[in-house]
Amino acid sequence: MDTDTDTRTVESKTADFQIRVEAGEKIEASDWMPEGYRQGALKFIEMHANSEIMGALPEREWIARAPSLRRKLSLTAKVQDEVGHGHLLYRIAEDLGKPRAAMIEDLIAGKTKFHNVFHYPTETWGDVAVIGFLIDGAALVTQKALLDSSYGPYARVLKRICAEESLHQRHGEDLVLEMCAGTDEQRAMFQDAVNRWWVPVMHFFGPPSKPTLDPLLHWRFKTATNEELRQRFFSLYIPKLWDMGITVPDPALEYDAAAGEWAWTEPDWEPLRRIARGDGPMTETRLAWRRWIHEAHGWVRLVMAEPERAAAA
């Protein structure tokens, strides 16, 4: 659509846009889009990018402490991939109209958000296994649903991200399986981590949402509701945990065949609201550290902003 000569009203263009996305067409960065779609897509992708950069912080603490050389390597590579995902996602968000430097500055100033699970401390190698298996698993469920997003650039970059994330999830399962087939202490370490992370994982999927009130679902940017994703997660991961003799701290969690879905206990949502206000257990510590790093590296950014001097010499 040639936007320069398109003189239709915004309402008319919006209606046509809705027809396009409902027909499964992909929207590209240079297409006309309702301002709400642009801002909603930007905010969603920006939060995803932020989450990759902030998620690197708890996990990288364990590179130094990994219990074997192979895990030292694999954890380094995993965190590297997360930084890479941040890079890929910032560029998709950038094409919606906000420079990468501005997004990074807003993140560390506490003005934009990142996923709840990265506001918590990691305490043991069991936490590394939970992050790799359950949290990456939850992220993968969410991201696979977004492969059908109406926003073409996001859907395309998610193919690479999902491929790398599925490797992370297998790696996470590998960590879990070694612990659960291992010593009593290893099993207990993993069970303890599951007990501490269960509620944050439930928070990750968000409260049961009202699909009709979600503009991103309306525009097919998202294609599944919070509840559909949570149910899929239960089906993929709970039987695996149970087969390893690992419980989750929800006495109601069980599959109800008559209802065709898992029954579960809604957690207290207040900790999630506090995180959304910037008040999670590790929020300020991690953002403060990122601010310090950003400040300390200012002189290197100047170097990276200039072409090589004396290059012709």
Partner: peptide, 20 residues
């Protein structure tokens, strides 16, 4: 071990990947 400590906190996103 020391080099790997830069992963996630290097001065530039793409350089973070290279140094890792």
């Amino acid at each position: 071990h020391r080099h790997s400590h830069w992963t996630g906190v290097a001065p530039h996103l793409e350089e973070d990947l290279a140094f890792s």
